[in-house]
Write a protein that binds this DNA or RNA. Structure first.
Lengths: 152, 152
DNA sequence: TATTGTTATACTCTATAACTATA
DNA sequence: TATAGTTATAGAGTATAACAATA
């Protein structure tokens, strides 16, 4: 047995699976961001959470759950971490006092701006890698897959 | 503030990010498999590990690390769990006694066959969802992205 | 009674560091 | 010294269950 390089390992059907390539691409994207993100002390998941909060001031955790399909306890913990780092505030809203409206702090906006620059740089590298392949068709395909696999 | 449905939440630039759609599609795929896989007591990651082991009998952990880009301790723990469940064997190889060749047991082959059927059913659903979009172009695009983001 | 959110707890996945054994 | 693999430990990320506050 002497498999010196990855190409000599038989991955056969695995590499023909859509799901496998999807995972490879997704983990490559996360891994690529993880180092520069670490300096900002945010994760890719927190970046996307903060982006939604920025675009939707006073959004509630329940709304975020519909997007992320996580358990509410998971979301609560994630929010708590962002609040603890002073990136997000949780404000009592007028009306239903069970709701807590989420918004970015000034520090949160700064971190988000830096993270966004990193993400967009990666986006450009991915677009370049696509070459002649139509990006919009790719995006549409990914959305269709999400729709097909979604079960509510 | 009254955001009753997901579509009313402004996701704006987020949904235009390739990385975001990639993650959505990948987590949809995992989530979709998680329930049927739970009955087999394997994870999607274990499925792909077992597939590689099946195709490459007596493969070593070091070889798997080049494919998965994990820490060797992570791989060791993953292998140990599969061995503990009697799905994989770790055999001393002739020659260098530091290596342990991994192979599937009969039980491992059975579990893998059942898992493969589930994965391939999902693959067909994803292909159907693509409609007129060229699957091969998609696969090529994903491989290019992985290549572009890989740094060794 | 139902909903929003929190907390306690546990399991998985991952990495770092220190280790054993072999080379 | 270097490599293959293990173990101990710790940090994310996730879920379930039980809870408090509010409706």
């Amino acid at each position: 047995m002497d498999k010196e390089r990855e190409d000599e390992i038989d991955l056969a059907q695995l590499t023909d699976y859509f799901g496998y390539q999807l995972r490879q691409a997704q983990t490559a994207s996360f891994r690529d961001l993880s180092e520069p993100f670490r300096e900002l002390d945010v994760t890719p998941g927190e970046f996307s959470l903060m982006t939604i909060v920025k675009l939707n001031p006073d959004i509630r955790q329940t709304d975020l759950l519909r997007i992320y399909r996580l358990d509410k306890s998971t979301m609560s913990v994630a929010v708590k971490r962002l609040v603890g780092r002073g990136l997000v505030t949780q404000d009592q809203l007028p009306g239903d006092r069970r709701f807590h409206g989420l918004s970015l702090t000034e520090a949160g906006r700064e971190v988000l701006a830096a993270a966004t620059a990193l993400v967009e740089a990666q986006e450009r590298r991915m677009e370049d890698a696509l070459g002649d392949i139509d990006k919009e068709a790719m995006m549409k395909a990914l959305r269709r897959i999400v729709g097909a696999l979604r079960r509510d």
